[in-house]
Design a binder for these strands. Structure first.
Length: 631
DNA sequence: TTAGGGTTAG
């Protein structure tokens, strides 16, 4: 057997890893040149590889170094393939693969390392055909049984969405080790076969913390967050090491489930056990707090972070916008630019939301145009939808329609829905009918489109059209999504679906609702009963307004959450105007902060005001829509 | 010197 003589890393080269800037690396480079160390091809290779792998921004420098070397070693070229596979230009890896294949040095031919890195490039590029060619080359060069290459191939096919190919590679492995098994488990989860992943997980004779994390990630990524938390609890009970990745995953599940208390527990655990605070973990915390409606805490974590990337900034900007703090979100965007962090398409979704919630149409338009003109980012459907929403909320319905008509791609349901919502807000029947027709053309069973148009007709007391629309819905089998609100009390999630009285404390809730009604009447509140009259579900007509799921959840919050704890409700539809006004008044009468997250954003109510937009609010009669910046 | 798990929107 051929023995490979290992050469230790030169101590000066080892120093490179402690460098934080390229400038420092260049100083070490100068020392190595002076000492003649780089004349040794092994040390030269180590030096180039360390520079290239340290940071992808160093790749140009590593390339220049390589250009001065006519006979790079296989190790050097493999390292360049590896570095480029992780960069923003992964296709450049193939340049070095070609160097290996066409090298003047006859001894150079690709090895198992080459393919381990090259398959990652294919995955990164989503290059299906190239991936198949690389797999062919793997077989041709005799590395199909190498466990590292096999793991890479499983990873590659998973990224390409080819689960059957993952199975083929995995089944070809003689005795797949823990790493390959975990890669396969992850592949099943990523490609939609989470139950098979779980079966594999349960049957594995040995698992380490990465396997556990992969299982949690699998559940979290397919939206089965509750099961993700179950696996996490099992992991804790079995005494498996929890690291920062476990924490990020569990936070992501908490965010989706809107379980702030559990999220807070994770944060406390991170601090108590000094879990390594990576940018990813910090971002997950910011995102969790913001999406659970605790924006103050989110910003506290944000400003406490030592390092922030585009994910962190986008999360915070979006979090502020989602909670109604539009101006603050735009200030933060300016801070981001000042710090030299390059925004991406997702950042602009957050920025446009920020403009939308405070009605800054001109500024929104400026940011939208800057996407392409300044940052070279092509706006996507979501960005167009947000612009329509922005014009619509500001009452500029004609401009919203013109904007839709100027879209370079076919307008989607989101764009037309934004217009339809604005038409409801501003009672514009003609445009509302156009928008509804367009939505139904794209999605014939879109219940929201029917309900909104029906509401517009009802605003005009056009009961004939309301009734005709109801019949169309019945004929087409369009069902209205029932309102559903959830509230977390003592770590337990309580769900209230409109019309459902099965909650064990429903009698008490009803009594509280009656008390609320009395208090509201005494305060001079007159409900806008229009929605009851034109509500299209028969069973919801009677008492519907006072039994909307969000009101029931708030009433339950009042009876079960003692002291000054804010009432946090999450609902599946947009909050109705009456519930919005009632929540505002309850916050004053019962001296309780209320935070409602609807399908669109958060609504904060305190002391009888909508937090952060009191001034705008005071200029309107309290039940009369539209309120710029509130809906 | 190589392989498996993580964050922003929708």
């Amino acid at each position: 057997m051929k023995s490979v003589k290992r050469i230790a890393k030169h101590p000066t080269i080892s120093l490179l890893n402690s460098c934080t800037t390229l400038k420092e690396m260049k100083q070490i480079h100068a020392q190595l040149v002076v000492k003649g160390i780089l004349n040794n091809p092994h040390f030269h290779g180590q030096f180039v590889a360390t520079i290239a792998l340290h940071n992808t921004t160093n790749l140009d420098y590593a390339n220049k170094l390589l250009n001065h070397n006519n006979n790079p070693t296989l190790f050097t070229l493999n390292s360049m393939i590896r570095a480029y596979s992780k960069s923003s230009t992964p296709s450049k890896s193939f340049h070095f693969y070609a160097n290996i294949l066409h090298s003047n040095n006859n001894n150079l031919s690709p090895d198992n390392y080459t393919f381990t890195f090259l398959v990652r490039t294919c995955a990164q590029l989503q290059a299906h055909v190239t991936g198949l060619c690389v797999h062919g080359a793997v077989i041709k060069h005799g590395f199909e049984l190498d466990p590292h290459v096999q793991t890479g191939l499983v990873f590659m096919y998973a990224e390409l969405g080819c689960l059957s190919s993952c199975h083929n590679v995995f089944d070809g492995a003689v005795e797949p080790d823990l790493v390959t098994q975990t890669a396969m488990l992850n592949a099943c989860a990523k490609c939609g076969d989470i139950d098979f992943a779980r079966k594999m997980f349960d049957e594995m004779p040995e698992r380490d913390h990465v396997t556990w994390n992969a299982m949690i990630a699998g559940y979290a990524q397919c939206g089965r967050s509750r099961e993700a938390l179950d696996v996490f609890h099992l992991m804790q009970m079995e005494g498996v090491k929890l690291n920062e990745v476990s924490m990020v995953l569990v936070l992501s599940a908490c965010t989706h489930l809107q379980v702030l208390d559990h999220g807070r527990w994770v944060h406390a655990y991170v601090e108590r056990y000094k879990v390594r605070m990576t940018v990813t973990l910090g971002t997950a915390l910011v995102d969790m707090y913001a999406k659970c409606g605790n924006v103050d805490r989110a910003m506290q974590v944000f400003w406490g972070m030592k390092e922030r990337n585009v994910y962190t900034w986008s999360s915070a900007i979006g979090g502020l916008a989602m909670n109604g703090f539009g101006e603050e979100s735009l200030d933060l965007f300016n801070d981001m630019k000042r710090e030299g962090v390059q925004p991406n398409g997702i950042t602009f979704i957050s920025v446009l939301k920020g403009c939308s919630v405070v009605g800054l149409v001109e500024e929104g338009r400026k940011h939208f145009d800057s996407m392409r003109n300044v940052y070279g980012i092509g706006p996507q459907l979501e960005h167009y939808g947000l612009m329509v929403d922005m014009y619509g909320r500001a009452g500029r319905l004609k401009e919203a329609l013109n904007f839709i008509n100027s879209m370079p791609m076919r307008p989607h349901v989101g764009a037309w829905s934004a217009l339809l919502h604005a038409c409801r807000m501003y009672k514009n029947k003609e445009l509302g009918e156009i928008a509804q027709r367009k939505i139904v053309e794209l999605e014939d069973k879109n219940d929201g489109a029917y309900v909104l148009l029906s509401n517009i007709y009802a605003d005009y007391k056009n009961w004939e059209s309301v009734s005709s629309l109801r019949q169309t819905m019945k004929a087409k089998g369009v069902k209205k999504l029932p309102g559903c609100s959830v509230i977390e009390v003592d770590g337990e999630v309580h769900e209230f679906i409109v019309g459902d009285k099965s909650h064990p404390r429903y009698d008490e809730i009803e009594m509280k609702l009656e008390e609320i009604s009395k208090c509201l009447r005494l305060s001079g509140y007159v409900a806008n009963t229009n929605p009851v009259l034109f509500d299209i579900e028969e069973e919801e007509k009677e008492d519907a307004l006072s039994k909307h799921s969000e009101k029931v959840a708030i009433a339950f919050g009042l009876i079960s959450l003692k002291g000054v704890v804010p009432i946090r409700v999450v609902m599946n539809l947009r909050i109705c105007w009456d519930c919005h006004n009632v929540a505002k008044m309850i916050s004053k009468i019962f001296n309780r902060e209320i935070i409602v997250r609807d399908r669109n954003r958060f609504h904060h109510f305190k002391d009888g005001f909508v937090k952060n937009v009191q001034v705008l609010w005071l200029s309107f009669t309290f039940w009369y829509p539209p309120i710029r910046g509130e809906y």
